[in-house]
Write a protein that binds this DNA or RNA. Structure first.
Length: 419
RNA sequence: GCGAUUAUGGUGAAGUGGUUAACACACCAGAUUGUGGCUCUGGCAUGCGUGGGUUCGAUCCCCACUAAUCGCCCCA
């Protein structure tokens, strides 16, 4: 038997229902914020991710699905959503659109070659939004509010917004050096992972769980001390806008993100739910004011997030939230007539009038069809045989009260409509 | 990339170094039933992840591989 590739999942049945329902919900919400849907390729030139996401990041150095196609092109399955959207923004010259800023959203698969565990897959679905062309802190707050409001709509409670600022690029570089100078002389006292982190991404050292209580962590330089006044004010503004939207958040000075392109605002939304796995970041994002330039576009500020739909599904499960409320079958039509086509056409017409209708496709006898009715539990059911077709009268039975009423065979829709 | 645990039918699972691998649910056939829901009867893994090895003999012991689950790193 051929099985699915490691780290992938099949979503079907109830889970599949939730998945598509969430996507519709997301689309509705984004429309209200006036974001436009964008669909970009699932694979891009490898170079895009190397330059966009960052040459030294874990994602690019050891997690991409790279391949060479039959035309000898170096391609990569996208490991995240932003780089492709930015590429499209530049390629389609959206920076010249009359309406600025450009507000986009997308939903699609991302691929990373990692060891699967709870909340981590090799193919996962990301919902993301990006705003390009405005550096206003209002945009930062709006982006965060989209995620928060989605969670509100679906009733998720155990989530916390963690917020931080990395400052502008200049202060970030200065701060990086300060960290290296601080840790380097005594690096031997820290764990092996920290030694690697100091080389690759010094900010991450602060995030270490093993050495969290080490003296060097407490005496480490703070981001805020390296901020320019502008950066400080900017961060304050973001907080004011969030307050205005009544969004709760926790400022976490140790919050850094793994992708190279971030500057200023960064945030994560984490699940703090009993029994949730250790991969608890459901949504993460921030500002990237240099990314468009890095990818050869005109200097354009940007802000966005990515959200893991599968993790969202896990959170819903952990909080036992039943997303799908009304998916009960309206009507089952048992077809025991010798003129199956006539009954079949009645089934279709009731469906097209807006009701959820099921029938039998296996030419089962009445007993078998009753079993289906029992399993599917429709609100109503009707048995149509030759007698009913001849008389034009059917008995419609309320499956809850077991009450039966005789109506005309073409009055089914009317009957259901007034209930 | 590293670590831990696991791998028996459609599902949940019990089990043993040696004739027919428990039990439950589901499913199928039939009986009964005021069109189904209850009850009863019967059926349902020639095989215990894959490949090697140990043994007279392995689903049960050993090794490798694969996969799953969870954790580290990292991230959605």
């Amino acid at each position: 038997m051929i099985q699915k590739p490691k780290g992938t999942i099949d979503l079907y049945g109830k889970e599949g229902k939730k998945f598509i329902y969430l996507q519709n919900l997301i689309a509705d919400l984004c429309e209200k914020y006036n974001y436009e849907y964008i669909k970009v390729p699932m694979f891009e030139a490898s170079e895009l991710f190397h330059r966009g996401v960052g040459e030294t990041t874990d994602i690019v150095t050891k997690e991409t699905y790279d391949f060479v196609d039959r035309g000898n092109r170096n391609l990569t399955l996208r490991p995240e959503g932003t780089a492709g959207v930015i590429r499209s923004f530049i390629e389609n010259k959206m920076y010249a659109n009359p309406n600025q800023p450009v507000k986009l959203y997308y939903i699609g698969s991302s691929f990373r070659y990692e060891r699967p565990q709870s909340g981590r897959l090799r193919e996962h679905t990301q919902f993301g939004v990006e705003v390009l062309g405005s550096d206003d802190p209002m945009v930062d707050a709006e982006i965060i509010s989209i995620a928060v409001n989605l969670f509100k709509i679906i009733g998720l409670k155990g989530l916390v917004v963690k917020l931080n600022s990395l400052g502008d690029t200049e202060s970030r570089i200065k701060y990086k050096d300060a960290l290296i100078n601080h840790f380097k002389p005594r690096i031997d006292e820290l764990c092996d992972d920290c030694k690697l982190r100091l080389e690759r991404n010094p900010l991450r050292v602060l995030d270490c769980k093993v050495d969290a209580s080490h003296e060097l962590m407490k005496t480490a330089p703070k981001t805020i001390d390296y901020f320019t006044d502008d950066s400080k004010n900017r961060f304050e503004k973001v907080k004011e806008y969030l307050d205005a939207l009544e969004i709760n958040y926790v400022v976490d000075p140790n919050l850094v993100r793994g992708l190279d392109y971030y500057s200023h605002t960064v945030f994560e939304i984490q699940a703090e739910i009993e029994g949730f796995g250790s991969q608890n970041t459901i949504c993460g994002g921030g500002r990237y004011n240099n990314l468009v330039e890095t990818l050869d576009g005109p200097a354009t500020p940007g802000m966005g997030f990515g959200m893991g739909i599968e993790r969202l599904l896990l959170a819903l499960e952990a909080e036992e939230i039943d997303l799908i409320k009304d998916d009960r079958l309206d009507l089952f039509i048992a077809n025991i007539s010798s003129e199956k086509e006539e009954v079949f056409s009645i089934v279709q017409s009731v469906r097209l009038s807006g009701f959820k209708v099921e029938t039998d496709y296996l030419n089962r006898n009445l007993k078998g069809q009753f079993k289906s009715i029992e399993r599917l539990n429709p609100k109503y059911f009707i048995i149509i045989g030759d007698d009913e077709l001849k008389s034009g009268q059917v008995k419609i039975k309320d499956n809850d009260t077991k009450e039966e009423e005789t109506i005309g065979i073409y009055d089914i829709v009317d009957y259901l409509s007034v209930r």
